[in-house]
Design a protein around this nucleic acid. Sequence first.
DNA 1: ATTGAGTCCTGAAGGC
DNA 2: TGCCTTCAGGACTCAA
Length: 288
Amino acid sequence: MPELPEVETVRRGLAPVLEGNRIDEVEVSNGQLRYPLPEDFARRLAGRTVVHLGRRSKYLLAELDDGNCWLSHLGMTGSFRFSGEDASGTFYLPRGKNAAHDHVRLRMGDGRDVVYNDPRRFGFMDLFAMSDAPTHPRLAGLGPEPLSNDFSAAALASAFAGRTTPLKAALLDQATVAGLGNIYVCEALWRAGLSPFMAAGDLVAPDGTHRLERLVTAVRDVLGEAIAAGGSSLRDYVHADGSLGYFQHAFSVYDREGEPCRRPGCGGTVVRRRQSGRSTFFCEICQR
DNA sequence: ATTGAGTCCTGAAGGC
DNA sequence: TGCCTTCAGGACTCAA
Protein backbone atom coordinates (compact mmCIF):
# COMPACT_ATOMS: atom_id res chain seq x y z
CA MET A 1 0.00 0.00 0.00
CA PRO A 2 1.28 3.44 -0.70
CA GLU A 3 2.88 4.70 2.48
CA LEU A 4 5.50 7.41 2.68
CA PRO A 5 8.27 5.58 0.75
CA GLU A 6 5.95 4.65 -2.11
CA VAL A 7 4.56 8.17 -2.35
CA GLU A 8 8.08 9.57 -2.35
CA THR A 9 9.02 7.19 -5.15
CA VAL A 10 5.95 8.24 -7.13
CA ARG A 11 6.95 11.86 -6.56
CA ARG A 12 10.42 11.23 -7.94
CA GLY A 13 9.00 9.48 -10.98
CA LEU A 14 6.39 12.11 -11.68
CA ALA A 15 8.41 15.24 -10.95
CA PRO A 16 10.34 15.21 -14.27
CA VAL A 17 7.05 14.84 -16.17
CA LEU A 18 5.19 17.59 -14.36
CA GLU A 19 7.71 20.21 -13.31
CA GLY A 20 8.04 23.07 -15.74
CA ASN A 21 5.31 21.55 -17.86
CA ARG A 22 1.99 23.18 -18.58
CA ILE A 23 -1.27 21.32 -17.98
CA ASP A 24 -3.10 22.01 -21.24
CA GLU A 25 -6.25 19.97 -20.68
CA VAL A 26 -7.88 18.25 -17.73
CA GLU A 27 -10.47 15.55 -18.26
CA VAL A 28 -12.38 14.15 -15.30
CA SER A 29 -14.32 10.95 -16.02
CA ASN A 30 -15.19 10.29 -12.40
CA GLY A 31 -14.86 13.00 -9.83
CA GLN A 32 -16.37 10.86 -7.07
CA LEU A 33 -13.22 9.79 -5.29
CA ARG A 34 -12.97 9.34 -1.52
CA TYR A 35 -14.24 12.90 -1.49
CA PRO A 36 -15.73 14.59 -4.53
CA LEU A 37 -13.27 16.71 -6.48
CA PRO A 38 -13.63 20.41 -5.65
CA GLU A 39 -15.86 22.57 -7.78
CA ASP A 40 -14.36 23.60 -11.12
CA PHE A 41 -11.36 21.37 -10.48
CA ALA A 42 -10.66 20.74 -14.16
CA ARG A 43 -11.19 24.34 -15.23
CA ARG A 44 -8.95 25.72 -12.46
CA LEU A 45 -6.16 23.22 -13.09
CA ALA A 46 -6.11 23.60 -16.87
CA GLY A 47 -3.63 26.12 -18.23
CA ARG A 48 -1.45 26.06 -15.13
CA THR A 49 2.23 25.20 -15.07
CA VAL A 50 3.57 22.95 -12.34
CA VAL A 51 6.36 24.79 -10.57
CA HIS A 52 7.32 22.06 -8.14
CA LEU A 53 6.13 18.63 -7.07
CA GLY A 54 6.58 18.10 -3.36
CA ARG A 55 5.44 15.66 -0.72
CA ARG A 56 4.14 15.93 2.83
CA SER A 57 3.42 12.65 4.58
CA LYS A 58 1.51 10.54 2.05
CA TYR A 59 0.33 13.58 0.12
CA LEU A 60 1.66 14.80 -3.21
CA LEU A 61 1.65 18.58 -3.42
CA ALA A 62 1.99 20.17 -6.84
CA GLU A 63 2.76 23.87 -6.60
CA LEU A 64 1.21 25.75 -9.50
CA ASP A 65 2.22 29.00 -11.17
CA ASP A 66 -0.94 30.79 -10.00
CA GLY A 67 -0.17 30.25 -6.33
CA ASN A 68 -2.47 27.29 -5.95
CA CYS A 69 -1.64 23.81 -4.78
CA TRP A 70 -2.92 20.58 -6.34
CA LEU A 71 -3.00 17.90 -3.66
CA SER A 72 -3.28 14.16 -4.33
CA HIS A 73 -3.57 11.22 -2.00
CA LEU A 74 -3.31 7.72 -3.48
CA GLY A 75 -5.48 6.05 -0.86
CA MET A 76 -4.88 2.33 -1.20
CA THR A 77 -5.02 1.65 -4.89
CA GLY A 78 -4.36 4.99 -6.54
CA SER A 79 -1.61 5.19 -9.16
CA PHE A 80 -0.35 7.58 -11.79
CA ARG A 81 0.85 6.55 -15.20
CA PHE A 82 2.21 8.72 -17.95
CA SER A 83 3.30 8.66 -21.57
CA GLY A 84 6.48 6.95 -22.57
CA GLU A 85 8.50 7.57 -25.68
CA ASP A 86 8.87 5.08 -28.54
CA ALA A 87 11.98 4.57 -30.67
CA SER A 88 11.04 7.40 -33.01
CA GLY A 89 10.54 9.82 -30.14
CA THR A 90 6.76 9.76 -30.26
CA PHE A 91 4.87 9.82 -26.99
CA TYR A 92 2.41 7.04 -26.30
CA LEU A 93 0.30 6.35 -23.24
CA PRO A 94 0.54 2.70 -22.17
CA ARG A 95 -2.78 0.98 -21.74
CA GLY A 96 -3.58 0.70 -18.05
CA LYS A 97 -4.98 -2.36 -16.35
CA ASN A 98 -8.55 -1.15 -16.23
CA ALA A 99 -9.49 1.97 -18.12
CA ALA A 100 -12.82 2.07 -16.29
CA HIS A 101 -10.87 3.31 -13.27
CA ASP A 102 -9.00 6.07 -15.09
CA HIS A 103 -10.60 8.98 -13.24
CA VAL A 104 -8.48 12.01 -14.11
CA ARG A 105 -6.41 12.63 -17.23
CA LEU A 106 -4.06 15.53 -17.83
CA ARG A 107 -2.72 16.44 -21.25
CA MET A 108 0.60 18.19 -20.79
CA GLY A 109 2.02 20.94 -22.95
CA ASP A 110 4.80 18.71 -24.28
CA GLY A 111 2.22 16.18 -25.53
CA ARG A 112 2.45 13.68 -22.76
CA ASP A 113 -0.53 12.36 -20.82
CA VAL A 114 -0.69 11.83 -17.08
CA VAL A 115 -3.50 9.61 -15.83
CA TYR A 116 -4.76 8.92 -12.33
CA ASN A 117 -6.24 5.43 -11.92
CA ASP A 118 -7.84 4.22 -8.68
CA PRO A 119 -10.07 1.11 -8.57
CA ARG A 120 -11.17 1.51 -4.96
CA ARG A 121 -11.38 5.29 -5.07
CA PHE A 122 -9.90 5.65 -1.59
CA GLY A 123 -7.68 8.36 -2.97
CA PHE A 124 -8.66 11.98 -3.39
CA MET A 125 -7.53 15.32 -4.73
CA ASP A 126 -7.94 18.93 -3.77
CA LEU A 127 -7.03 22.32 -5.14
CA PHE A 128 -6.46 25.29 -2.85
CA ALA A 129 -4.29 28.37 -2.33
CA MET A 130 -0.74 27.40 -1.39
CA SER A 131 -0.89 29.97 1.40
CA ASP A 132 -3.73 27.97 2.97
CA ALA A 133 -1.65 24.77 3.16
CA PRO A 134 -0.71 25.22 6.84
CA THR A 135 -4.37 25.31 7.84
CA HIS A 136 -5.66 22.83 5.28
CA PRO A 137 -7.83 20.25 7.11
CA ARG A 138 -5.80 17.33 5.71
CA LEU A 139 -2.42 18.86 6.47
CA ALA A 140 -2.82 20.92 9.62
CA GLY A 141 -2.92 18.02 12.06
CA LEU A 142 0.03 16.10 10.67
CA GLY A 143 2.92 15.28 12.95
CA PRO A 144 6.59 15.65 12.03
CA GLU A 145 8.07 14.20 8.86
CA PRO A 146 9.87 11.07 10.04
CA LEU A 147 12.99 11.82 8.01
CA SER A 148 13.29 15.38 9.30
CA ASN A 149 15.00 16.61 12.44
CA ASP A 150 11.60 17.39 13.94
CA PHE A 151 11.11 13.68 14.48
CA SER A 152 13.01 12.70 17.60
CA ALA A 153 12.81 10.76 20.84
CA ALA A 154 11.68 13.97 22.52
CA ALA A 155 8.85 14.40 20.00
CA LEU A 156 7.71 10.81 20.60
CA ALA A 157 7.94 11.23 24.36
CA SER A 158 5.67 14.23 24.16
CA ALA A 159 3.20 12.42 21.88
CA PHE A 160 3.18 9.23 23.98
CA ALA A 161 3.12 10.69 27.49
CA GLY A 162 0.19 9.30 29.47
CA ARG A 163 -1.20 7.37 26.51
CA THR A 164 -2.58 3.92 27.19
CA THR A 165 -3.24 3.25 23.53
CA PRO A 166 -1.17 0.41 22.04
CA LEU A 167 2.16 1.48 20.62
CA LYS A 168 1.13 0.37 17.15
CA ALA A 169 -2.02 2.51 17.14
CA ALA A 170 -0.02 5.49 18.40
CA LEU A 171 2.41 5.18 15.49
CA LEU A 172 -0.40 4.84 12.96
CA ASP A 173 -1.79 8.12 14.28
CA GLN A 174 -0.65 10.67 11.70
CA ALA A 175 -0.45 13.31 14.43
CA THR A 176 2.33 11.37 16.16
CA VAL A 177 4.47 11.02 13.07
CA ALA A 178 3.34 11.51 9.48
CA GLY A 179 3.44 8.94 6.71
CA LEU A 180 3.48 5.55 8.41
CA GLY A 181 0.92 2.88 7.53
CA ASN A 182 0.35 -0.68 8.64
CA ILE A 183 3.32 -2.18 6.82
CA TYR A 184 6.09 0.14 7.96
CA VAL A 185 4.78 0.35 11.51
CA CYS A 186 5.01 -3.44 11.77
CA GLU A 187 8.48 -3.36 10.25
CA ALA A 188 9.77 -0.53 12.45
CA LEU A 189 8.48 -2.15 15.65
CA TRP A 190 10.15 -5.42 14.75
CA ARG A 191 13.39 -3.64 14.04
CA ALA A 192 13.20 -1.75 17.34
CA GLY A 193 12.35 -4.96 19.21
CA LEU A 194 9.21 -3.42 20.70
CA SER A 195 5.82 -5.01 21.21
CA PRO A 196 2.96 -3.52 19.15
CA PHE A 197 0.68 -4.10 22.13
CA MET A 198 2.51 -2.27 24.88
CA ALA A 199 1.05 1.01 26.07
CA ALA A 200 2.66 3.92 24.23
CA GLY A 201 3.02 5.81 27.50
CA ASP A 202 5.19 3.05 28.96
CA LEU A 203 7.96 4.05 26.59
CA VAL A 204 8.29 7.47 28.18
CA ALA A 205 10.80 8.38 30.90
CA PRO A 206 12.21 7.76 33.42
CA ASP A 207 13.72 4.69 31.78
CA GLY A 208 12.30 4.82 28.26
CA THR A 209 14.58 7.24 26.44
CA HIS A 210 16.82 4.50 25.18
CA ARG A 211 13.93 2.60 23.66
CA LEU A 212 12.42 5.77 22.17
CA GLU A 213 15.68 6.48 20.44
CA ARG A 214 15.79 2.94 19.14
CA LEU A 215 12.29 3.42 17.76
CA VAL A 216 13.20 6.70 16.06
CA THR A 217 16.19 5.05 14.43
CA ALA A 218 14.11 2.06 13.37
CA VAL A 219 11.46 4.25 11.73
CA ARG A 220 14.07 6.32 9.93
CA ASP A 221 16.03 3.30 8.73
CA VAL A 222 13.00 1.35 7.54
CA LEU A 223 11.65 4.29 5.56
CA GLY A 224 15.04 5.32 4.25
CA GLU A 225 15.84 1.85 2.99
CA ALA A 226 12.45 1.51 1.34
CA ILE A 227 12.88 4.84 -0.43
CA ALA A 228 16.36 3.80 -1.54
CA ALA A 229 14.94 0.52 -2.85
CA GLY A 230 12.21 2.38 -4.74
CA GLY A 231 14.61 4.98 -6.03
CA SER A 232 17.22 2.52 -7.18
CA SER A 233 14.60 0.53 -9.06
CA LEU A 234 12.71 3.53 -10.36
CA ARG A 235 13.02 2.31 -13.92
CA ASP A 236 11.51 -1.07 -13.02
CA TYR A 237 9.13 0.67 -10.75
CA VAL A 238 7.43 2.22 -13.76
CA HIS A 239 5.36 -0.83 -14.54
CA ALA A 240 4.82 -2.28 -17.99
CA ASP A 241 1.49 -0.49 -18.09
CA GLY A 242 3.21 2.81 -17.42
CA SER A 243 1.90 3.20 -13.90
CA LEU A 244 3.81 4.34 -10.87
CA GLY A 245 2.22 2.02 -8.37
CA TYR A 246 3.77 0.75 -5.19
CA PHE A 247 6.76 -1.53 -5.23
CA GLN A 248 7.40 -4.81 -3.46
CA HIS A 249 9.92 -4.49 -0.71
CA ALA A 250 11.59 -7.27 1.27
CA PHE A 251 9.72 -7.28 4.56
CA SER A 252 10.93 -8.72 7.85
CA VAL A 253 7.53 -9.46 9.38
CA TYR A 254 4.75 -8.02 7.22
CA ASP A 255 2.83 -10.77 5.41
CA ARG A 256 5.23 -13.40 6.78
CA GLU A 257 2.87 -15.21 9.16
CA GLY A 258 4.28 -18.57 10.25
CA GLU A 259 7.72 -17.90 8.82
CA PRO A 260 10.85 -17.72 10.95
CA CYS A 261 11.86 -14.46 12.60
CA ARG A 262 14.78 -12.97 10.70
CA ARG A 263 16.62 -11.73 13.77
CA PRO A 264 19.81 -13.76 14.05
CA GLY A 265 19.63 -16.22 16.91
CA CYS A 266 15.99 -15.38 17.77
CA GLY A 267 14.41 -18.62 16.57
CA GLY A 268 10.90 -17.19 16.91
CA THR A 269 8.06 -17.36 14.42
CA VAL A 270 6.21 -14.44 12.91
CA VAL A 271 2.71 -14.21 14.34
CA ARG A 272 -0.27 -12.39 12.93
CA ARG A 273 -2.82 -10.96 15.30
CA ARG A 274 -5.82 -8.76 14.73
CA GLN A 275 -5.39 -5.36 16.34
CA SER A 276 -8.24 -2.86 16.04
CA GLY A 277 -9.38 -4.35 12.78
CA ARG A 278 -5.91 -4.54 11.20
CA SER A 279 -3.39 -7.32 10.89
CA THR A 280 -0.35 -6.90 13.10
CA PHE A 281 2.69 -9.02 12.24
CA PHE A 282 5.32 -9.46 14.95
CA CYS A 283 7.66 -11.85 16.71
CA GLU A 284 6.56 -12.82 20.21
CA ILE A 285 10.10 -13.73 21.19
CA CYS A 286 12.08 -10.61 20.38
CA GLN A 287 9.45 -7.85 20.49
CA ARG A 288 8.82 -6.87 24.10
C1' DA B 1 -10.09 13.83 25.92
C1' DT B 2 -9.23 9.44 24.48
C1' DT B 3 -10.08 5.35 22.13
C1' DG B 4 -12.33 1.77 19.59
C1' DA B 5 -15.60 0.50 16.03
C1' DG B 6 -17.73 1.29 11.73
C1' DT B 7 -17.55 3.15 6.97
C1' DC B 8 -16.24 3.73 2.24
C1' DC B 9 -14.59 0.79 -2.17
C1' DT B 10 -13.22 -3.11 -5.53
C1' DG B 11 -10.45 -7.02 -6.64
C1' DA B 12 -8.02 -11.01 -5.19
C1' DA B 13 -8.10 -15.20 -2.86
C1' DG B 14 -10.03 -19.12 -0.65
C1' DG B 15 -13.86 -22.41 0.55
C1' DC B 16 -17.34 -25.45 -0.93
C1' DT C 1 -17.23 -23.67 -12.98
C1' DG C 2 -19.23 -20.42 -10.15
C1' DC C 3 -21.01 -18.40 -6.26
C1' DC C 4 -20.17 -16.81 -1.78
C1' DT C 5 -17.43 -14.86 2.00
C1' DT C 6 -13.39 -12.71 3.72
C1' DC C 7 -9.68 -9.63 3.53
C1' DA C 8 -6.79 -5.64 2.24
C1' DG C 9 -6.40 -0.51 4.81
C1' DG C 10 -6.07 5.36 4.95
C1' DA C 11 -8.55 8.49 7.04
C1' DC C 12 -12.72 9.88 8.04
C1' DT C 13 -17.21 9.89 11.43
C1' DC C 14 -19.52 8.44 15.40
C1' DA C 15 -20.29 6.55 19.95
C1' DA C 16 -18.79 5.09 24.50
